[in-house]
Simulated assay, not measured.
Amino acid sequence: MATKSTTKFTANDVPSQRERRVLITGANSGIGYEAALELARKGAEIIFPARSLDKANDAISRIRQQVPGAKITPAILDLASLASIRAFAARISFEFPGESLDLLINNAGVMAVPQRELTVDGYERQFATNYLGPFLLTALLYPHLKPQSGTRIVTVSSGVSNQGKIEFDNLQSERAYSPMFGAYSQSKLADLIFQQELQRRLNASGSPILSTGAHPGYAITNLQTSGPAGVMPIGFRIISTILKPLASQDAAHGAFPTLYAAVSPDVTPGGYYGPSGFQELKGYPVPAKIAPLAKDLALAKRLWSETERLVGVQFTP
C-alpha cells in the first residue's frame, strides 16, 4: 500500500471540470448524488442515469437548486438488467457519438438484500447490480472514452471487500446465500479485482486512461438506512449502533474518496482510495488497503474470463 498522504482533500479541492463530460451511475442518492453535485458545481456536464426518469429528474432538480443552469442529461439504466445496460449504451452511442466521455464513475449498487433474489437474466441481484452490470457498462462505453491523459474509470468498492472471496462454484449464491458477508462482500471484492485488472490491461495496451477505485468508509446513506437492517448479526448491529456516532460520516464526506479518485492529480494508475481514519471508516481520502485477493493475477484473469461469458461480451481495453 502506498504511503498515506497528509493532504486533507475535500470537495473544495476539485479542479474545474468545464468542458468535461461525466457519466456517473447511482447519482440520485447517497455518495453518488454528492459526487455529482460537486462535479456540477465545478462545471462538468453530467449524464445522469437512474432506474426511472422520475428518480433522475428529482435528483437533478435538487442539484439545480444549488447549481442553477447545471448541464445534466437524465436517462434510464437498471444495472440488474443486461438488456437495460445495452439499451442505455446504445443511447449514449447515438446522443454522444465518438470519443465523448472524460470520466465514468461506476457508483451504483445495492447492499445486503435480505433474501436471495434473481435478476431477469437469472443472476443473483447483488452480484449482478454491483459487479456484472458495471463490467458490461464499462465494456460497452469504453469506445466512447477519450484516449487521453485525464480520462478515468472509477469503480466504487467497499471496505468489506477485505472479507470477500470469489467462489466460482457459488457466484450466484446458488449453493449458499449470506446477504452481507457473502454475496455483498463477494460483489465488492469483484469490483476491486476488476478495477485492478482493468489498469493492468490498460497498461498492456498503452492506453493513457486510468482505472482508479474508491470506497466511502462508513458513510450514512440509503444503503445503511434501507439495506442491511435486520440482516447482520444482532451483536454486529449493537456494536455498529454504538460506534455510529464516532466512526461514521455523512454522504457528502463519504463522497470525498470517489471525487479524489476521479479528479485528483495525485492519483496513481490503479490507485484505490478510502478514508484516513481508524479501520478506514471515516476521514479524508488516502490510499486504501487492497484486499490480497485483488492482487491475485490468476484469480483476476479467471474472473474476467468468466464475467465475459456471463455478460456475453468480450472486453479488450
Score class of each variant (00 low, 15 high):
Pro15Ile: 07
Gln186Glu: 01
Leu303Phe: 08
Lys244Met: 12
Arg41His: 10
Gln148Met: 08
Pro114Glu: 07
Ser185Val: 04
Ser276Tyr: 11
Gln186Ala: 09
Ala183Lys: 15
Ile92Gly: 08
Ala288Leu: 08
Ala219Met: 00
Glu95Pro: 10
Trp304Met: 03
Ile238Pro: 02
Ile153Thr: 01
Ala255Tyr: 11
Asn130Arg: 12
Leu299Asp: 00
Asn222Ile: 07
Gln195Gly: 08
Ile46Met: 00
Phe127Val: 03
Pro257His: 12
Pro317Trp: 11
Gly254Met: 11
Leu259Tyr: 07
Asp169Thr: 09
Leu137Asn: 10
Tyr131Ser: 04
Thr7Ser: 13
Ala83Gln: 13
Pro49Ser: 03
Glu45Ile: 08
Ala90Tyr: 04
Ser187Asp: 00
Lys4Glu: 10
Pro74Thr: 04
Pro143Lys: 08
Leu198Val: 00
His144Cys: 00
Ser178Gly: 10
Gly43Glu: 01
Pro275Thr: 07
Gly109Arg: 09
Tyr142Leu: 05
Ala219Pro: 00
Thr6Trp: 04
Pro228Tyr: 12
Val160Ser: 10
Asn222Val: 14
Lys42Asn: 02
Gly230Ile: 02
Leu141Asn: 03
His144Tyr: 02
Met1Thr: 14
Pro68Lys: 14
Gly159Trp: 14
Gly270Trp: 08
Ala11Ile: 06
Pro208Ser: 09
Val14Ile: 10
Ala204Ser: 03
Gly69Asn: 02
Leu192Arg: 10
Ser187Met: 02
Lys289Gln: 09
Gly235Ala: 14
Leu223Ile: 08
Gly230Leu: 00
Ala261Glu: 04
Leu246Met: 12
Ile76Val: 11
Ala44Pro: 07
Met232Tyr: 14
Ser226Thr: 15
Gln148His: 08
Ala262Ser: 13
Ser93Cys: 12
Thr25Tyr: 06
Thr73Arg: 07
Ala255Ile: 13
Arg86Met: 01
Glu197Val: 11
Asn222Leu: 15
Ala139Gln: 00
Thr7Ala: 15
Lys295Ser: 04
Glu124Trp: 08
Val263Arg: 13
Leu137Lys: 12
Pro287Arg: 07
Leu77Thr: 01
Ile209Met: 10
Ala35His: 05
Ser161Arg: 13
Leu37Arg: 13
Ile60Val: 06
Thr119Phe: 06
Arg237Val: 07
Tyr284His: 12
Ala139His: 00
Gly150Gln: 06
Glu280Gln: 14
Asn222Arg: 15
Gly213Ser: 09
Lys301Thr: 02
Ile60Cys: 01
Tyr33Val: 02
Lys42Leu: 02
Gly109Pro: 05
Ser157Thr: 11
Asn162Thr: 15
Arg125Leu: 05
Ile105Thr: 01
Met111Gly: 06
Asp266Ile: 06
Arg21Ile: 06
Ala190Gln: 05
Leu243Tyr: 07
Glu124Ala: 09
Asn130Pro: 12
Glu34Ala: 11
His215Glu: 00
Leu281Cys: 10
Lys8Gly: 04
Arg125Trp: 02
Asn162Trp: 12
Asp121His: 06
Pro68Trp: 12
Arg125Asn: 04
Ala80Thr: 05
Tyr177Pro: 01
Ala214Leu: 11
Val154Ser: 00
Pro269Ser: 05
Lys188Leu: 01
